[in-house]
Design a protein around this nucleic acid. Structure first.
Ligand SMILES: [Mn+2]
Ligand SMILES: [Mn+2]
Ligand SMILES: [Zn+2]
Ligand SMILES: [Zn+2]
Lengths: 150, 150
DNA sequence: ACAGTACATTAGAACGATTATAAACTGTTG
DNA sequence: CAACAGTTTATAATCGTTCTAATGTACTGT
């Protein structure tokens, strides 16, 4: 299986943060290298987050993990391709990688570009129109753009 | 007024494509320069379109309109700020400028990145969650990602 | 019409995020 | 351990976009 579903019973990974990184990599068939283990830990320990490549690189540096920006990009893309992460492209040319891989939507707080999750059942999207000829539905993104008001 | 509403009676601009460009610029208080007139014509003559800066620059070149890419960007942004265009940021770092300024949503055909309009009442988005504290709702974008199937 | 001025256009450089390259390194297998 | 495939890395390249500052143009008042 490529990724885990929300409704599956918890297999333990969420509870054992330190052993988890290795298990995740094994599961998707990626070699557990120093860099991937460290990045997996940074990504999956603690709650869900929406993080850019630059930010993750900064977190790594901050945690004294020696890893190049190129590897951060490589790893994020591999994790995305393996279903460990979801990529959210939003704003001008910025990619966020979302550790919440369940079906959900987003608030996008401009202008600083912060993402906030919206549970999928908080938005009633009924009655989808049929896709254009020769195309098949991939995914529905609802982005609620909000701005600072205070 | 900053822009025209869907429900207003047609004031004639849609019917008189050639006189239209000038009228539109006047309406929003932009000087009718050679470049802006030419770009307005390319944008607003004919049906609605979703166009990138590069594409519009290409259309201009193709129509023997001498205009720099910088001016194409400047003009698109001015038109957007004036309410003549809507900007749709989607895909990795690409901006589309949408001549359909009415409230509506989009199919996004990957991987070539074509946009197709969805009338706003074809998608039932009810029951929006309340925005995060200190923020106020700006706009709701529904993007239905589809892929080639044939 | 003309000068004065604010606004607009432009080529080219700069930018920021991302992707490609190709050489050095490391995990795994036998 | 040897051998190989897979991985990491510094660095260059790319892409769309924005900035700069020099030149050109549209409007205003006389
Ligand atoms: Mn699934
Ligand atoms: Mn309106
Ligand atoms: Zn999310
Ligand atoms: Zn549209």
């Amino acid at each position: 299986m490529a990724h885990r579903h929300d409704s599956e019973p918890n297999t333990g990974t969420a509870q054992r943060p330190f052993a988890d990184a290795l298990a995740r990599l094994k599961e998707v068939g990626l070699r557990p290298t120093r860099q991937r283990l460290a990045l997996a830990k940074l990504l999956f320990d603690g709650g869900d987050q929406h993080i850019t490549a630059e930010q993750l690189h900064g977190m790594a540096r901050n945690a004294s993990v020696k890893v190049s920006l190129a590897t951060v990009y490589n790893t994020l893309h591999q994790f995305r391709d393996s279903g460990l992460l979801r990529e959210v492209v939003i704003g001008q040319g910025r990619s966020y990688f979302d550790t919440n891989i369940h079906d959900h939507h987003h608030f996008f707080v401009e202008p600083m570009g912060q993402l906030v999750d919206i549970p999928v059942d908080s938005v009633e999207v009924g009655q989808l129109p049929t896709p254009p000829d020769g195309t098949v539905l991939d995914r529905v993104d609802v982005i609620i753009r909000v701005t600072r008001s205070a």
